[in-house]
Design a binder for these strands. Structure first.
Lengths: 267, 267
DNA sequence: CGTTAGTTTGACGCGATTCAACCTTCGTGG
DNA sequence: CCACGAAGGTTGAATCGCGTCAAACTAACG
């Protein structure tokens, strides 16, 4: 199902470095270490499974390009999409503490994935405290996204829910440079949006149509755009503090121009 | 609002030690360290807030006794309860990585809470790898509980959802010795259950009544019991693998009788 | 040009909400 | 000891958001 990728030379900085670099300042050694983690790569095509619910996990996966969905199936046959994984996201970071998959991860688009030995993760925590804190931050961030989904599913209308979801995707994509201020390309079907939102496909369609009629969404060719972004944030009950998490910061030093922390002044 | 507790002598093993001890074998030094973390204690009465949404977090909180709810309010004024914190649960474990509270934590019953300096948490990660892995496990576990709530909110009926929620509480309470095989005392109002399940109080009431009429739930005085536990698990679509996480294991050594790992054979 | 996947639309029904009233329990003070 | 009020539980009726079913439409692709 998954083919091994021959050419493994990183032509550019990997999305994980971008992610971590937006939160903590990295030394060149740390960057080199992260890039070196990603030599073992595989490619998946749309629809293939990266992980199956119940599988014994053996490796940590790092999404280098493409979108994936994490989902669970209920006994009644309904599918709940728990979240969307985007480039730079890590899947199975905590293999060392929980060996069985509790969700299926499936390729929404063609995927490039780096497979990482669990021992290398432990090595990060032992040897690279700054990297470790970056990974911790990503864990907290994912927890917050999941919490926000909880709020949406439990306490927001279909209209707010869908708009909030699309705005969240937009924010996450901007952070990794895969969306513009205008909008982004959305590879999700209405059925998949419905499964993420806990709605039927039909009602999802009707709600999206109404949102576009109200000027809160628009499709320009394949691009999803927000014609009135301020009002969209408002209607979706999109929390400014939640948004804040997606903004780039340089927490260790007040040195906005640099991604690389000087080797001369560690920590 | 919160009074400082004078008598701080631990008469018994703390719930956090119970929790961690059920996952990893602990040395006496590690146990002593955890207990020493809990000298700075406060008491809260029912209804008081431990943390307010948006607050700057300064300390990590460890729940020693009592129940708390974590919730968010939407712009429309609806409350979504994100989860229930039980004795042994840590609140704000990742203060070091995310300084602002994204939810309010409120005392459901009278509470005893230990306040822990964030630096002590970092000390755990630096000095006590076994304890650190225990905390990591708790983080993953909380993530899994939240995921399961997502599935409930998005893909299960009111009936399944409520039953699943009560069964989850029961499992968690058994793990910390606060529930019997029969059942447990439930300090939640129907309004609070409703806010956790994304339902109205009225419909929650009607659903609970129907569940009791169907012999899946019963109230014996103040105790909630499950007259037919097998059928309850079945109806609630309660995943055996999810349940598994609540069971006590001794992962480091195949030595079920001991909580304490020998000092002679570290790691 | 046909096939398949995805979107759109209408009709109908159910599950859940809302409103409103009433009941039960329990703690408190006269 | 009873009276009272507050908090929470119970119940029915009207309403609505959303699900289900079904059919038609559109776009992509070989």
């Amino acid at each position: 199902m998954a083919r091994v990728l021959e050419t493994a030379g990183p032509d550019n900085v990997s999305p994980l470095v971008k992610r971590l670099g937006s939160r903590v300042l990295l030394t060149e050694e740390e960057i080199a270490f992260i890039e070196a983690l990603q030599t073992n790569r595989i490619l998946l095509s749309t629809g293939e499974d990266l992980v199956r619910d119940g599988d014994e996990l053996k490796t940590t996966c790092l999404l280098r390009s493409g979108w994936a969905i994490r989902y669970r199936l209920t006994a009644a046959g309904r599918r709940q999409i728990l979240g969307i994984s985007l480039p730079g996201d890590v899947i199975g970071l905590h293999v060392n503490f929980h060996r069985r998959a509790i969700a299926t991860v499936s390729a929404l688009t063609d995927l490039e994935v780096a497979l990482i030995e669990p021992l290398r993760i432990l090595e990060i925590y032992r040897t690279y405290p700054v990297l470790a804190s970056g990974l911790e931050w990503m864990t907290v961030h994912n927890f917050n996204i999941l919490s926000e989904h909880n709020v949406s599913l439990g306490a927001r209308s279909a209209r707010e829910r869908i708009l909030h979801f699309l705005l969240e995707l937009w924010c996450r994509l901007i952070q990794i440079g895969e969306a513009t201020e205008a909008g982004f390309r959305l590879p999700l079907t209405q059925q998949q949006i419905a499964d993420a939102m806990g709605l039927s496909q039909v009602h999802t369609n009707k709600t999206i149509r109404k949102l576009t009629a109200d000027g809160l969404l628009a499709f320009e060719g394949r691009e999803l755009v927000f014609p009135d972004i301020e009002r969209a944030f408002d209607v979706a009950d999109f929390d400014a503090r939640f948004l804040q998490q997606f903004r780039t910061r340089t927490p260790l030093r007040n040195d906005p121009g640099r991604l690389v922390r000087s080797l001369k002044r560690p920590d």
